[in-house]
Design a protein around this nucleic acid. Structure first.
Length: 220
DNA sequence: TTCCGGTAAG
DNA sequence: CTTACTGGAA
């Protein structure tokens, strides 16, 4: 248990001076959070920023987005790639507005019924917009927690029970929003997929990263 | 398990 | 030139 307390403490300390800033972190309504998370699937956050701002400026409300000309939405979303996702978002906006009206739910089960919304996006809306202590699992979270706690991250680790148990244990239930932001920022800036910056990592310095321990052993 | 995509970093 | 990106559906 103490290892997770230490993990959260070191992560939080690191984040105090290294946090990233994104527009969707400011106004976290269910609608804006949902739009951001849909765009962020398999897409770099920096690449999403201009597209997200153009979208929410053009369509400040769910009603406006649902009633917009699909061609205008396609033009805005095109730079993000994933053409199937563009059509999915257009379909989702219509279904969401028809079924929920202007007020989107922050309930995971309800969100999961929307097309294109999976565990990650539903959990992100529940957490960021609803403040619920939901453990989010994306490729970056898998990489960081897998490395620090020595859990296998090969293949489809994000779907394995072992990884679900780990993310659930590591989650800071007292401040889930800060925790998730910190974890994502840490993954993007320090614990990168290739060439991670272990020399300025609080976990390697505190000798509580399993990945780094083996890395050192292999070097000798 | 596999595939999707424009974009930008390495 | 590769590779990876705050996943989800078939």
């Amino acid at each position: 248990m103490g290892q997770f307390l230490q993990f959260r403490h070191l992560l939080k300390q690191w984040w105090l001076t290294a946090s990233r800033d994104f527009p969707w972190r400011h106004h976290r309504s269910p609608y804006r959070t949902l739009i951001a998370e849909l765009m962020l699937r398999r897409t770099r956050a920096d690449q999403v920023v201009p597209v997200y701002e153009r979208f929410v400026n053009s369509y400040p409300t769910l009603a406006m987005a649902a009633q917009a000309d699909p061609c205008d939405i396609r033009a805005i979303l095109y730079p993000l790639g994933l053409s199937w996702r563009i059509e999915n978002i257009i379909d989702l906006l219509n279904q969401a507005y028809n079924r929920f009206g202007e007020v989107l739910p922050i309930d995971i089960e309800a969100l999961l019924t929307l097309p294109g919304v999976g565990d990650y996006v539903a959990g992100a809306v529940a957490c960021f917009a609803g403040g619920q202590p939901v453990a989010l699992i994306d490729t970056n979270v898998v990489r960081v927690l897998g490395r620090v706690f020595g859990v296998d991250i090969q293949g489809e680790a994000r779907r394995r029970r072992e990884m679900h148990d780990l993310t659930d244990s590591a989650l800071d239930r007292d401040d889930p929003v800060t925790y998730q932001y910190a974890l994502l920022d840490f993954a993007a800036k320090v614990c990168t997929a290739k060439n991670p910056f272990c020399n300025c990592c609080p976990f390697s310095q505190a000798s509580c990263c399993e990945f780094y321990k083996h890395f050192i052993i292999d070097k000798k």
